[in-house]
Write a protein that binds this DNA or RNA. Structure first.
Length: 422
DNA sequence: CTCCGAGTCAGG
DNA sequence: CCTGACTCGG
């Protein structure tokens, strides 16, 4: 250990990363170890019942699909499915993959009006995904005490985020009603509750803070619905005249900006032409000129240094920026824009976890952190401590960094993860 | 039997 | 943009 320290400490100090190591990565280790050990209780009866329901519905769809396609085949094989849809039934194909025509959800959505089999396959895919990855997957990972224990990796991602494996508890469904039922199966011990706290728009708030863009800061300081605020500014209409569609598009642009998106990807996301997407981005940058100036600065700096870094000096090397390959270079530019934002959010969350962990140890000894999902923390505690734990989580998450815009977190609790999401 | 790339889809 | 799991098929 001494030898390692004396070899590595000067290297970290040279790079300005000693504090990152001592104040974030090192203390986080124990916190993660305890979370891994604690695990999270799963209602195995409810989960296997749900799995049964999924199986039955998937079987019905399977026979529907064979009937509609006039023959049996392996629906799970993209190759066979593509042959049935595009060669045999003659449906119109979209983009191609290396091995054939794509059969992904985007393509199947477009085929909905053309043939009823498309809808059946989409639903079949949803059910079998939930069944194999989540219902069966979680049951298989269940320990004898009824809890699942993930493994959190600290040294895998290029941005500083954690990753979760065997099982991955950072991609439990939330976007559809059926999928989010899985969250209902994550439950506390008898007499306990789950408390869930999540940061609101942390990445966009960090963009507002780091870029210093006055308009974007004002939008957050106003405290309203940020995507609607953005729509109002970008489309030049009164806040009350923002339509659902305007908000939806503004939200997609906000989302894309954080990724250093291209007009092409944005057009894919919101279903418009590339030209229209470009117009939205131009309007966005005209509205928030400080964001464009920041982005130009980051890429320029990255070209000079060969790396980008977060507010806490976590670093990502970017050899791609000096590539002679245009696509690779463009990729490097998008990474240069995304990493400081996504990475700083990860740093902030890690600091919050350490702070929460310390306070729980001191003030709520029965409570324990159980999960982290990038911008969300889940604590299990006695029902009587729910209110205190909620307040503690909110305070520590919001107080861990001082930004030029509010950093806000919302906490709720319930008898399962779905309820606790609020 | 194991390994691996590709396609797909779950999350942020 | 950042991930991981499952399935197929070689």
């Amino acid at each position: 250990m001494d030898a390692l320290y004396s070899a590595l400490e000067p290297k970290l100090r040279e790079r300005g990363q000693w504090e990152l190591f001592e104040e974030i990565e090192l203390p986080l280790c124990r916190c993660l170890a305890e979370m891994e050990l604690a695990g999270c209780r799963v209602d195995s009866k409810a989960l296997s019942d749900f799995g049964g329901l999924l199986s039955r519905r998937a079987e019905e769809l399977e026979s529907d699909i064979y009937r509609l396609a006039d023959g049996e085949f392996n629906i799970n094989s993209p190759k066979q499915l593509g042959e049935v849809l595009f060669d045999r039934l003659g449906l119109s194909h979209g983009k191609k993959t290396k091995t054939g025509w794509s059969t992904n959800a985007d393509v199947l959505e477009k085929l909905r009006g053309e043939h009823p089999v498309a809808d059946a396959v989409l639903e079949y895919r949803q059910l079998t995904k939930l069944k194999s990855t989540y219902a069966d997957g979680l049951l298989k990972a269940l320990d004898p005490d009824g809890r699942v224990r993930t493994s959190f990796q600290m040294t895998v991602t290029a941005t500083g985020r954690l990753s979760s494996t065997e099982p991955n508890l950072q991609n439990i469904p939330t976007r559809t009603d059926l999928g989010s039922e899985i969250r209902r199966m994550f439950v506390p011990e008898a007499g306990n509750v789950l408390v869930d706290a999540d940061y609101s728009q942390i990445e966009l708030r960090l963009l507002a803070h780091i870029s210093g863009d006055e308009g974007m800061r004002a939008a957050f300081l106003s405290g309203g619905d940020f995507h609607a605020e953005t729509a109002s500014r970008v489309f030049g209409v009164e806040r009350k005249d923002v339509t659902h569609e305007m908000r939806r598009r503004a939200k997609a642009v906000n989302f894309g900006i954080v990724y250093g998106i291209s007009a092409f990807s944005l057009s894919q996301d919101i279903g418009t032409t590339q030209k229209e997407a470009k117009a939205y981005m131009d309007a966005y940058f005209a509205t928030f000129p400080g964001v464009r100036a920041y982005m130009d600065r980051v890429v320029e700096q990255a070209r000079t240094d060969g790396y980008v870094e977060t507010l806490y000096h976590r670093r990502r090397d970017l050899p791609e920026l000096s590539s002679s390959n245009f696509n690779l270079r463009s990729f490097g530019e998008r990474v240069a824009l995304n990493m400081p934002i996504q990475g700083t959010a990860a740093d902030v969350m890690k600091l919050a976890m350490i702070a929460v962990w310390k306070r729980l140890k001191a003030e709520l000894t029965q409570a324990r952190l159980v999960l982290q999902v990038h911008d969300e923390l889940i604590v299990e505690c006695p029902a009587a401590d729910a209110e205190k734990a909620s307040t503690l989580l909110k305070e520590e998450m919001e107080g861990v960094a001082q930004l030029s815009v509010p950093l806000t977190a919302d906490a709720h609790w319930g008898k399962n993860w779905l309820e606790a999401k609020g």
